[in-house]
Every structure is written in C-alpha cells, then in structure tokens.
Simulated scan of single mutants.
Amino acid sequence: MNPSYTLAVAGIGKIARDQHLPAIAANPGFSLVACASRHASVEPVRNYPDLDALLAAEPDVDAVSLCAPPQVRYAQARAALAAGKHVMLEKPPGASVSEVEALRDLARAVGRTLFATWHSRYASAVEPARAWLASRTIRAVRVRWKEDVRRWHPGQQWIWEPGGLGVFDPGINALSIVTRILPRDVLLQAATLHFPADTFTPIAAELDGIDADGVPVRAEFDWRHGPVEQWEIDVETTDGLLAISEGGKRLSIAGQPVTLLPEREYPSLYERFHWLIAHRSEDVDVRPLRLVADAFLLGRRVEVEPFGR
C-alpha cells in the first residue's frame, strides 16, 4: 500500500485554487490538513495567517507546498525544512539561483525531500518530444512564448518587483520544456530585455544561445501579445520539424500530429512529490532559472512605454 502524507499549502492565490487544491484533492497519497494565507482561507481545513503560525500549530504535518510569490519562497522553505517538513516549490522555485541551491543543501542536511517543480514539463507533449529528439540531429530551436499579461496576471504587482521575473514568469515555462527535451544543455550568449519605464522587470525579451554542440537556440517572450496566446517551440532536425504548441498540449513531427495522453500537469506534480518523499529523494533542477539569471546578466536593456499599472 502506498503511504499517505499530511500536507499543508502556503499561499492561497489563483494558482493554488485553480491547480494545486484540485490536484491534492484527487491524490489519495496526500491529505490536506492546513493552509496559510494572509488574505484567504480554505474550508474545511485549519487556516493560519502565515506559515510560521502553521508550523508552530501543526507539528505533525509531513509536507508543505509553497505557492506564494518567489520573493518570499526562500524564507518559507527554509522554515519548513528546519521544522522537518518535505517541501514542494511552485515555479519559479526562488528569486535567485543561490537561494534554491542553499535550500537543496539544507534539505539534504536535514534528510527531507525538496521538489522544485516545473509544471510545464508535465505537459503531454514533452516526454514524447524528448524521446524522439534523443536520437535526432538538431539544426535549430525556436521558441515563441507570448501572451497578454493583463489577462493572466490581472492586478498582480509582485511580478513587476525585483525577483518577480516579469515576462520570464511565463517564459521560464518554455525554458523548462527546452531544457527537458533537448539532449544537451543550452548556453545563453545574448539577450535583449524590454523594460517599461515604470517597472523593475521586463515585459518582453529575446534570448539567443547555443546548445553544447553549437546548435542555435532563439527564444522570444512578450507580455503584450493577444488575444490568442502563442506558446510554441519548434525544433528543426534532419528528420523534419518537431513542433510543440499550446504550451505542450499539441505535438507534430514532420507535419504529422502526434496523439497525446490527456493533460494533467498538476496531478502529475503531486504524484511526483509523493514518489520523491516515499523514496527519500529530491528533484531540484535550476537550469531554467539559471538561464533567466544569465539573461539579466547578459541582457541589453531597452526602455519601452510605461505599463501603466
């Protein structure tokens, strides 16, 4: 019989309500017993104003899923790990690469699981694409990840503050797929970042890199796009074009559509978290976040019109 773990969620916002809570409810391996949020509550579980209060009142909770913005993720995860909890991190796993690496070291030291999630890697097109590309010669990679920020992040100010990533908040989803499906790592070489005059993070970006064999990788991110989202990754190979679209819901190879399994990104995340805990393992891949950090290091800044938030 699979073990069952008690679970708490910190940060009850849109992503928690839309994705995390339904996925937890459908997973028999977890029992949601408590939540922490400054402005929201979840019935019928116990609710607390912040994670510290939850940890003090719930010493027997086995695991914590952190869904608050990345700027507070490190302090929350550190407190949970120090209290002996297994920890799952919503993407991006932290506000910096060094924070996530420090959390990984702490989790190892206290013998607890740390899971830095990348939900887009569990889109139904990703693993079939990865398997097909493993034996192909790749010529070029092109990413177009464009959407309307006012539709997907209405009124959310944290995305425009330092550590909020701006357009890289969705763009990192594409990078998480690229770093999963390509056989070799991507090295960033140049970037152009478009900053509104009234924000600390970019609203659009273009990235240029290569893989370890010198294959060009180009990514274009834009939060001023609409009304239809463009979430596409094209991989040109000597055996034809592999095309991922709709964020990983669609896949075609050499012009032919590929039949995929039903979409279940967040249920798969919690299945993975359960497996990691049961096997006393970890899953902490910082490559997508490192590419974003490299973009800020290498990026040429271009100021554009104010966002007007």
Score class of each variant (00 low, 15 high):
215 V>R: 08
198 D>R: 05
185 D>C: 05
107 A>T: 08
183 P>C: 13
151 R>C: 01
169 D>V: 14
192 T>M: 02
200 F>P: 01
186 V>D: 12
117 T>Q: 11
219 A>S: 13
199 T>S: 11
138 I>P: 01
106 L>H: 07
202 P>H: 06
175 L>H: 13
102 A>K: 00
173 N>D: 15
177 I>S: 09
159 I>E: 03
182 L>H: 09
89 L>M: 14
184 R>L: 15
115 F>C: 00
113 T>S: 10
111 G>F: 06
211 D>M: 05
88 M>C: 10
140 A>M: 00
195 F>Q: 08
144 R>G: 05
218 R>V: 11
197 A>D: 03
167 V>E: 09
143 V>C: 12
215 V>A: 10
221 F>D: 03
106 L>W: 08
101 E>D: 11
180 R>L: 06
189 Q>A: 11
217 V>F: 12
141 V>S: 14
105 D>W: 02
107 A>E: 07
137 T>D: 15
81 L>Q: 01
180 R>C: 14
86 H>S: 06
142 R>G: 02
217 V>A: 07
111 G>I: 04
126 V>E: 06
192 T>Q: 13
186 V>G: 04
84 G>E: 10
160 W>F: 14
180 R>V: 07
204 A>R: 07
81 L>D: 00
107 A>W: 12
93 P>W: 06
114 L>I: 05
82 A>V: 07
142 R>C: 01
152 W>V: 13
228 V>E: 15
131 A>K: 14
196 P>D: 09
174 A>H: 01
112 R>T: 04
119 H>A: 15
113 T>W: 06
184 R>H: 14
130 R>K: 15
179 T>Y: 13
142 R>Y: 05
123 A>V: 02
180 R>A: 15
92 P>V: 15
122 Y>H: 13
226 G>C: 01
184 R>G: 02
81 L>H: 01
227 P>G: 03
162 P>M: 04
220 E>L: 15
227 P>K: 05
216 P>Q: 08
120 S>D: 13
210 I>N: 09
113 T>G: 05
195 F>S: 09
190 A>N: 12
83 A>F: 02
177 I>N: 10
96 S>R: 10
222 D>I: 04
200 F>T: 04
216 P>N: 10
208 D>C: 13
151 R>H: 14
129 A>P: 01
173 N>P: 00
146 K>Y: 00
187 L>K: 12
118 W>H: 15
227 P>M: 05
193 L>P: 09
138 I>C: 10
219 A>K: 07
95 A>Y: 02
184 R>T: 14
185 D>K: 15
85 K>D: 05
211 D>H: 03
95 A>I: 06
97 V>K: 05
110 V>T: 14
163 G>A: 03
209 G>I: 13
201 T>Y: 02
204 A>H: 03
136 R>Y: 06
154 P>D: 09
215 V>I: 14
223 W>G: 15
178 V>F: 14
101 E>Y: 02
227 P>E: 09
195 F>K: 07
204 A>K: 09
220 E>V: 15
95 A>D: 02
205 A>Q: 11
143 V>G: 06
165 L>C: 04
205 A>G: 12
196 P>T: 12
138 I>D: 01
148 D>K: 07
206 E>R: 15
207 L>M: 08
185 D>F: 03
